[in-house]
Amino acid sequence: MASQMHAIEGQTYALCANSPVSQADNDRNLPRTDQPPQEGRWQRPAWGGAAAVYAPDGRRLTEPADSAFDGLIYCDIDIDQIGNAKAVVDTVGHYARPDLLQLLVDDTPRKHVVRRGGRYEVAGTLLSAHKPLSNLVRCETQHDTE
């Protein structure tokens, strides 16, 4: 599925190549113990054969192979299909539009610490910059009675 998604997202042909794994190869990958393998382990008995070619629109172009198939798969591809897929799904084209996206670089040298007057200036606390709630309520009440 990852190869199919790569084909769709990249609007390109994707080749998924792998080799079948025989039971003997699978057994060599198991830990060496005297106990038999546990049921449900990730190792499957003789598997593989999932090689495929996917088109830019995600279609599988090759027939599914037998899981024990050990050989080559091939198919004809049409390079023009890449352009057709890119015209339908433009995953990166909007980044080329300066009216939608702009990268601004300010390369002015900056310092992490800025001192003013030889000492750090504190503008007070956040609460000191605002009126208390009781004053705001009093002002609204006076405004309503006028």
Rank of each mutant, 00 (worst) to 15 (best):
Q11T: 09
K111F: 05
N18Q: 11
Q35K: 06
R138G: 01
A14M: 07
G71W: 04
L30C: 01
F69L: 15
Q43D: 05
L100Y: 01
R41N: 05
L101P: 00
S128P: 05
I79G: 06
T141Q: 12
C16R: 11
D34F: 12
N29K: 11
E9W: 01
D57W: 08
Q142L: 06
A123W: 03
M5K: 08
L103N: 01
V137G: 02
L100T: 00
R44G: 04
V137R: 15
D78F: 01
S22M: 10
L100R: 01
R44D: 06
H143A: 11
L72W: 08
H94S: 10
E9G: 09
Q142M: 05
R138N: 12
N26G: 12
L101Q: 14
Y74V: 09
R116F: 15
A52Q: 01
L30K: 10
P132I: 02
L136I: 14
V122S: 14
L103I: 03
R97S: 04
D80F: 10
H6I: 13
C139F: 09
Q43I: 05
Y54H: 04
S134C: 06
L100S: 00
D25C: 05
I77N: 07
S67V: 02
G48L: 12
Q23K: 11
E140L: 13
L133E: 14
D107T: 04
F69M: 06
A87Q: 14
V137E: 11
V92P: 01
A129F: 05
S3M: 13
S19Y: 11
G10D: 02
C139W: 06
D144F: 04
H6D: 07
A55H: 15
D57K: 09
A68G: 04
D99P: 00
A51I: 00
L61E: 12
A85F: 06
Q102H: 03
L126I: 10
G49D: 04
G40D: 08
C75H: 07
V105E: 06
Q23L: 05
V21N: 14
H112G: 13
E140D: 09
S22P: 12
G49I: 02
R59D: 04
S3Y: 08
A50N: 11
Y13Q: 07
D66I: 02
I77S: 03
F69N: 07
L136Y: 09
T12K: 06
L100G: 00
N18V: 00
K86P: 02
C16M: 11
S3N: 08
G10I: 06
G48D: 03
Q11E: 04
H130M: 09
A55D: 13
A96H: 10
T33S: 14
S67A: 15
G71R: 14
Y54A: 05
A52S: 09
A17Y: 02
G93E: 05
L30W: 10
L103R: 00
V105S: 07
C75R: 06
V105T: 09
Q4I: 03
G10M: 14
A2S: 03
M1Y: 05
H143E: 10
L127V: 14
Q102L: 00
I73G: 08
A123L: 14
A55I: 12
V21K: 11
Q43N: 15
A46T: 08
D106P: 02
Q23S: 10
T108C: 12
P37S: 13
I77Y: 11
G71Y: 04
P109T: 06
D144K: 09
L15Q: 13
